[in-house]
Amino acid sequence: ATNIVGKVKWYNSTKNFGFIEQDNGGKDVFVHKSAVDAAGLHSLEEGQDVIFDLEEKQGKAYAVNLRIK
């Protein structure tokens, strides 16, 4: 899925991951530091509006192509 809109539920910059809540009511999506770095960001803030693509690997969904809304 592409261009999914959501809000950062939480992001832990020490542990380098967090979760994004989808605006469409879907399951929360894992986001890793690598996606944050690829977006040219240092971190994510709770409540921040983002747009992302959804990829699945080994049955787990995660956010890629992250951008600030």
Rank of each mutant, 00 (worst) to 15 (best):
I51N: 07
Q58T: 09
Q22T: 14
F19T: 02
E21Q: 13
V31P: 00
H32A: 05
Y62M: 10
V31D: 00
A61K: 09
V36H: 02
Y62E: 13
G40W: 05
K9D: 01
K33F: 07
L41V: 13
D23H: 15
E55Y: 12
V36G: 02
V64R: 09
V5C: 04
F19R: 02
A39Y: 03
V36Q: 02
K15M: 10
G47Y: 06
N65M: 07
V50W: 02
D53K: 03
E21A: 14
G40Y: 06
E56P: 05
S43M: 12
V29G: 01
D49K: 15
N3A: 06
V50G: 01
Q22K: 09
G18N: 01
Q58E: 13
A39S: 08
V31K: 00
T14R: 10
G6A: 04
T14Q: 10
I68G: 07
G6E: 00
Y62P: 01
L66Q: 00
E56L: 13
Q48P: 02
S34G: 11
E21K: 15
A1P: 14
F17Y: 14
A63N: 00
L41Y: 14
V64P: 00
L54R: 11
G40H: 12
S43G: 12
G6S: 02
E45W: 15
A63P: 02
T2P: 10
I51Q: 08
G26S: 13
G40T: 04
G59Y: 11
K69T: 05
I4W: 06
N3I: 03
L54C: 04
V5G: 06
F19W: 13
G26T: 14
E21S: 15
T2F: 14
N65W: 03
I68D: 14
F52N: 00
R67M: 10
V31E: 00
V5S: 07
T2A: 11
D23M: 15
D23G: 15
W10P: 00
E46F: 11
F19Y: 06
E45I: 15
V64E: 08
D53W: 04
V64L: 07
F30C: 03
K7S: 06
Y62T: 08
Q22F: 15
G26C: 05
D37M: 12
N12A: 09
K60F: 09
E45L: 12
L54M: 11
K60D: 07
D28M: 09
